[in-house]
Computed example of a mutant assay.
Amino acid sequence: MVSDGGIHHHAHGEWREPSLSHRTIRFQKGIYADFHHLFLLQAGTAVLLLEPEEQRSLQGPALAYLPPQARCELRMAAGAAGFLIGASPQIMVDAIGDQAESYALRTFSERLWLTDEPRPHAVEETQPLVAGFVRELGDPSRASWMVISAYLRLILMTLWRTGGSEAAEQRGRGGGASILQRYRQLVEIWFRQHRPISDYARELGVTTDRLHSICCGALGRPPVQLLHERVVQEAKLRLERSARTVQEISDSLGFRDPTYFSHFFKKRTGFSPATYRDFARKTEVARSDMLSSGYSDWP
């Protein structure tokens, strides 16, 4: 469990200059074990070694986005050069935010993503953002959490768009699928406001019965359960990955008082918020299914 601290405990970035020999980069080690990484290969070749016994070749210019669960290592050939950046789960939470696109970014951020072929356009758009990320961290006098979070949000949005995910999502909008997707987006924007389901249905232009039918048919749960699951998942993320007090987390999630938040959380998880935080911080259960696990868990 990584607690809040200095920016350099939550982000790193570097430019890898060309070398006369090959180099191996192992991502999941030390304080970077739970980091999300992005490798921008500007020139040369590299090989990404995945588990189990799978490898992918990269030819610059190329991009590789690597979530923590993508246990892998990177081998840069002699002469290869590129940027490597990483961010902790805490910064990812801030970067993804709670806007209409946040659901898509949360899902995207949990998946390994590679450019299957050289895509100069994607690299051209991403490179100045990655370079800015590295430059910000390289100046100790001004390295800012807010700036790093902003760069990371722009990087994720650029990858999501240039990788075709946005277009695929647009194509998938139709009928019930469109309403469900729009409901998810509204939940991302409104879940802290504790609005009734009738407000969501009205905004979507459907009856509450129609919204109930769509959610149950596609996901097997009514819309109110999905909404509550989203609140619980956000609470878990904050309890696991921040140093905020339970009252601060309760306030940030829109609850009228910490006692009501504790009852809400315990009813749906079996733990009080304080007990859950203690449970989550025990290293021997760090990979338990009871933890929030990732951004794409809802639903």
Rank of each mutant, 00 (worst) to 15 (best):
T162Y: 04
T24I: 15
R241C: 12
Y103V: 06
L239W: 02
Y295W: 14
I96A: 08
H37S: 10
I96C: 09
K282N: 10
E229G: 13
R171D: 11
Q170Y: 06
I148C: 03
Q225W: 12
E117P: 00
S198I: 09
R106H: 03
R111C: 09
R277S: 08
L204V: 02
T126S: 07
L58H: 11
E136D: 07
G44E: 01
Q69E: 08
R244T: 04
F191Y: 15
K267E: 15
F133P: 00
L49S: 08
T208D: 04
A177P: 08
P258I: 09
Q185Y: 08
R26V: 13
G174C: 10
T207R: 01
T259H: 12
R119D: 15
A131M: 05
D199V: 14
F35S: 07
Q55G: 07
S144Y: 02
A80H: 03
Q170T: 09
G175F: 01
A218L: 15
L112Q: 06
E169H: 06
E125G: 15
P258H: 08
S102E: 02
K282T: 06
S102D: 00
Y103N: 05
G175P: 05
E73A: 01
Q69H: 15
R171W: 08
G172P: 12
E240R: 08
A81V: 02
H22Q: 13
R184W: 05
L180M: 03
G205S: 03
S88D: 11
A43H: 13
A150Y: 10
E229H: 13
E124P: 01
I189C: 05
M290G: 00
V134H: 00
L20W: 09
I7S: 01
E166Y: 08
L84R: 06
C216N: 12
T283N: 12
H9M: 10
M76K: 00
S213A: 15
Q99M: 12
A70C: 12
S109R: 09
F27G: 03
M1L: 14
R192V: 07
K266P: 05
R71L: 15
L211A: 01
F265D: 01
A46E: 13
G164N: 04
G176Q: 15
R16A: 07
H22Y: 12
E54L: 11
S242R: 10
I31E: 06
I155F: 06
E51Q: 10
L152H: 04
H194V: 07
F271Y: 15
T208I: 09
G172A: 05
R71I: 15
S57P: 01
S213Y: 08
L227D: 03
T259E: 15
T245H: 07
L129E: 01
F264D: 11
Y276N: 04
S288E: 12
P61N: 03
V224C: 05
G164I: 02
R184E: 13
A87Q: 04
L204I: 07
S144F: 00
I96H: 04
L84A: 06
L180Y: 01
W113A: 12
I7T: 02
E73Q: 11
A64H: 10
T283G: 14
Y151P: 02
R230Q: 14
